[in-house]
Design a protein around this nucleic acid. Structure first.
Lengths: 227, 227
DNA sequence: TCACGGATTAACCGTATGGTTAAACCATGA
DNA sequence: TCATGGTTTAACCATACGGTTAATCCGTGA
């Protein structure tokens, strides 16, 4: 599943300068657009779209504030673009691994734990940003993310069902299992300040905690699946 | 652990009307203060403190906007009060159950699953609110929540260590286990719109999913602990 | 070389918002 | 009954903010 498959095509009218000039894709300066999007990404992820200020984005992009509107039409539209981009960066990683047709359940669990811990370590604001935006504007995701033809986890579902039927695994609906696994992986990032405070994981210790987690979680979750 | 033990005492100067009149607790109308706090609670939890408007809180409390400042001094202070109150409502439930001295690990896991699913069902915005606020203002929790003398999970930690030493359980640090469990319990609420969309859990189906979850998670997590 | 048009900017605008002020209200007790 | 002081309000204020406008810049093709 490529990221673009997830995102509803929306470039249809990305706020052209009043006169709806054609030439939809790649106008002269696609690079400026990207620079703005990048700046918006940084600012929005840190502050959340509600607290973020367009001026700050413009500054960080090194352009005039009016240019944001020239390219994206409004703060909300820009926020939509960033949200869609971030969701489309996270979800395929999860579904791509867990939904793969050619790996065992065990391989998938080990792979997704490694991948996700690495990913959120490298993008520590992403999970919190998504949770924030989902909370503040719950309907946006329906507007922006396209439903997919076949459920992306159909293969994993079959694997779990067959193993359950064969008696080699505890019966467990995919959704229940995947959401347990993802919750365990994401919560430390979603509530990092609280987690750090209560489990004494400030600074370096948080990293050590993640190393240990990467080690322990796969076996733990696979053990949970044993009958 | 009572809720109040968690919250740093802060009433010391709750923005009295300039003349710092003594009479700290229960001035004439403690009830108005409570009504404002209640309204703030409702508005902040739905919208997050950044998007929430003081006017809306005043309306919902049936008072003039100036009264918010009379009682709480500023929007930020009011937000602090709500945040502290909400954190102090969630955390003792978890630590109270998991840290209890007189229950087995199995009893604790079963109890906390029941309790938390019920609690978040009844307070569906709380988890998202906490995540949002932690993300947007990561330092607030250190300012508002007092560190506790003895770690609240010391007993559980001992139980896990003893069971590991006896070979009846897989070795598992408390933090790793508790954060896996809490993540599994809270993620559906933290990212409900996304979860609902991708696992087809709109409306009633979400409730059914929670019922099923309440049934499955205890055994699943206890199985994960088996050696 | 110059006209065209997209890209970019400085300056501006209306308003929503958090916060303040001065006055009115009202219960209490002297 | 009236002075006191905590409580509440209507009206007001400053400004931060998202958005708009009109002009300028500048590469390109005729």
């Amino acid at each position: 599943m490529s990221p673009n498959q997830l995102v509803k095509q929306s470039r249809k009218k990305s706020a052209a300068p009043v006169t709806a000039s054609a030439k939809a894709s790649a106008p002269a300066d696609e690079e400026t657009r990207a620079r703005i999007l990048h700046a918006a990404h940084r600012v929005f992820l840190r502050a959340g779209t509600a607290k973020a200020r367009t001026q700050e984005i413009a500054d960080e992009a090194g352009v005039n504030k009016a240019l944001l509107h020239y390219y994206f039409g409004s703060k909300a539209a820009l926020a939509d673009a960033v949200f869609a981009q971030q969701a489309a960066q996270l979800l395929p990683r999860i579904f791509g691994i867990l939904g793969a047709p050619d790996r065992s359940v065990e391989q998938k669990v080990r792979a997704v734990v490694d991948e996700q811990i690495g990913f959120h370590r490298a993008n520590p604001y992403l999970a919190g940003f998504l949770a924030t935006e989902l909370h503040v504007e719950p309907d946006r995701i329906k507007r922006l993310i396209a439903p997919h033809g076949t459920p992306p986890l159909a293969v994993l579902e079959q694997q779990l069902q067959q193993a359950a039927a064969a008696g080699t695994m505890r019966p467990m609906p995919v959704a229940q299992f995947v959401l347990a696994l993802m919750g365990a992986l994401m919560l430390p990032f979603l509530m990092r300040p609280m987690v750090s405070l209560f489990f004494n994981l400030e600074g370096d210790r948080f990293d050590a905690f993640l190393d240990e987690r990467q080690e322990l979680l796969p076996d733990f979750f696979l053990a949970g699946l044993r009958p």
